[in-house]
Structures are given as C-alpha cells and as structure tokens.
Design a protein around this nucleic acid. Structure first.
Lengths: 113, 113
DNA sequence: TCTTATTGCTACATTATATGTAGCTTTGCT
DNA sequence: AGCAAAGCTACATATAATGTAGCAATAAGA
C-alpha cells in the first residue's frame, strides 16, 4: 500500500522522521483537500467526488485508504469522517485558510503590472 | 510552468480558492520538506539535494522554481532562503512537527500487536 | 594560464502516480 | 422483482518523479 510510516524510510528521511512521514502523506494529491472538506461534515464517497471536483475514483479510494490507515479518517454511518486525530490535524491546518487569502494578493497585483 | 495560482482553476477548485491553490502547491513532492529545511538556514542546490536525501535534481529544480514564483523562497548569496512570506508559512507549519511525533506513536503500538 | 573542483543545473530513459471512462456489486427502496 | 444510488474496481492514457549522466559557469590553486 506504501503508506508513509514514521520510523521507516519515507520521502525526505531514511530514518522516517515523523514530520517527513507526515509531509509524505499530506503531500499526495488531494490528501489535504480531503481533510479540509471532511471537516465541514461527514461525506460519502460520491459526495467527496463532487466536492473535490476533478478527483478520479481511483485516486480518491487510494487516498481514503491511506488516511484511514494513518488514523486520520474513519467510516461511520453518515460516510467518511475525521477521527479525533484527524480533527486535531485539521485544527493545525486551519490557519492556512486565512493566510492563503493574504498570500493570494500577490497574484492579483501581478495582473495589474 | 503550471503553478497553481489562486483565482484560477487548481486541483480542488475550479474557481481557484486560495486554500486549494495552496494545497495544490504544497501537495507536490518535497514542497513542504524544502520549506521545512530552508528554515534552519539558507541552502545551496547541492545542499538541498543532500538534505532531502532522495530528491532528483529535476524535481528539486522544478519545485524551487515553483516556490520562487509563489513568493515563498528566493535566491541570495548564501543560496536559497525563505522570503518573509515563506517564513510566515513555515511558522504555520511548525506545529506539525510536535504533532507528528505524537501521531507517530500510533504506529509503534501497531508493531506490538 | 592551465588544471581541478564545485555548483547549478539540463537531458533523457525508466518507473510511479493520477486521470477519465466504463461498469460491476451491494444495499435500500417500492 | 425492478430500479436507483453508493462504493467501489479495471484498465487505458497522460502526467509527474526518479536516477544517472553530464555540460556550462564560476572559483581557487599550482
């Protein structure tokens, strides 16, 4: 399955430094987007496909399996949800939302030049 | 170059929501690892290659170009460094370091079962 | 000034990942 | 039983990353 496991070699660290394992996991397409969207509410597979706009079912399924194995999401009756650890991680990512809107201004200015 | 630009379609958002553009950018191999490492000190291209252990020069170069265009890093006399915006972003990512060490415990327990 | 070394890449073949479309099961109606 | 929706899997194609080689530019030493 090739889940990046802390303590084992991962992208960025032969000794599997936890932060590098996390970056490996989150640095896969859609991983952060899925976490971000699941925070609003639990979603079914098809709902995630819609919200994520252009994700392929193959990739979505792979990502969901990885996040499940990484203890960040789980399946409930209403669909996929964040685990408490997933929720914690979301809270750490949350500030990026505000920051990204400020960061986006850089690109607006560019157009005016 | 295919940089994910806020306001234009990106992975996860046809309207280019800033957070999705940011996730697209950071969710590319090594992007967060590079930012993480550059925080310690400025690094040359070859130094980054060493620190990142298994990055290919092709990918490193591509990622550096993207991060430069995204106003997160720049070249100085001592090599590549974080811009002030890059530094801000690093500070937001920093808490992941501590959290990832706690998260890593999940995997240790697994081995014991 | 002629090596020799180092840095910052580029080229290119191979491998790994992601996409897009189709469609097969399973579950839940009615 | 028949139909619809959900949760996938299969598979062909396209895109991204790796790994190795090596070139051009700068720097320092003999």
């Amino acid at each position: 399955m090739d889940l990046p496991i802390p303590g084992q070699p991962v992208r960025g660290s032969k000794s599997g430094q936890p932060i590098m394992a996390l970056f490996d996991l989150l640095g896969r397409s859609w991983a952060m987007g899925i976490i971000w969207n699941l925070h609003q509410r639990p979603c079914t597979f098809r709902e995630l496909q819609q919200i994520c706009e252009s994700i392929s079912p193959t990739t979505l399924n792979k990502r969901l399996k990885e996040l499940k194995q990484a203890f960040l999401i789980e399946r409930s009756l209403e669909g996929y949800t964040l685990t408490s650890q997933g929720e914690e991680l979301f809270l750490l990512l949350q500030p990026l939302g505000k920051w990204s809107r400020k960061w986006a201004e850089n690109f607006k200015e560019k157009e005016d030049e």
